[in-house]
Amino acid sequence: MDVFVGLLRNILEEGLIYGIMAMGVYVSYSVLHFPDLSVDGTLPLGMCVTAALILGGVNPVLASIIAFACGALAGSITGFLHVRLNITDLLSGILVMTAMWSVNLAITKGSAVLPYYNEDTIFNSGIAKMLPEGAYAYRVVIIVAAAAIIVKLLLDIYLKTKSGLLLRAVGDNEQFAISISQDPGKMKIIGLAIGNGCAALAGSILSQQSQSANINSGTGMVVMGLASVIIGTSILKKSSFVKPTTMAVCGAIIYKACLAVAMQLGLPTNYLKLLMAVILTLALVSNNYLSKGRRKQNVETPEF
């Protein structure tokens, strides 16, 4: 029983952290239709920035916010490459992802792993200390959930503002944005900044959970983010009151649960990335299949 609870807690912790990244992927992929590969580089960027800042004595909450800002900056570079220098979306992401490798190494001063075991993190200082004694085992889940909810609410509010509405319009129909005299390129840059900011924030929290930064932890993040968004939206599509941001987080939790179950069933760790790719493939295929079926069901062409 304890094993089960522990497993569940683990899934929730990780699912919620990666859920923050998935919400970012929702903005770049679902809202802007931009397949952003730079996430593989900006998640570890968030880790490295956080590690360096916390080792430098910066308050962990502030460090998390700065990590978000650094990710946003990297994301806006992806956007700049695509929008202003006319490099294809995929390639822009690959360029930033590749460049981030060196940037991250520069931040960690050359070490692939940068631990900070005895430093303050959001999980052992500040609000975390105010939690009652009995909740200690669940402090990570509680704080991570709070972070995910804050990000979700901020994103939901943003997407309802003028700027957010324009962002959605750009993803939907660039020509419309032009028609209302707005620069679609600017909005793409903003959207990618938000997406990668979320990825870096997830990296920041992830690193504070393990109290170390790992240069290699970015591999497969794009795949995981996309899979989360697609799983979340296709499962919860029917319930119209659930916001897409919530769907992304739920998708991440379900995704993590799938991985955890596979590991419990004895899948060797080496096959983890293969499994991640398989899950995304299945999600994509079933999503295509589902939406095709649905399209056939309700083709209504309203009369004029």
């Binding site: 003028k162 700027s163 509405l165």
Partner: peptide, 17 residues
């Protein structure tokens, strides 16, 4: 319509609709 109504103006952080 809200977007079009704001044509040429600043799209800031006020309510979209």
């Amino acid at each position: 319509m809200s977007l079009a109504d704001n044509k040429g103006k600043i799209f800031g952080l006020s309510a979209g609709v």
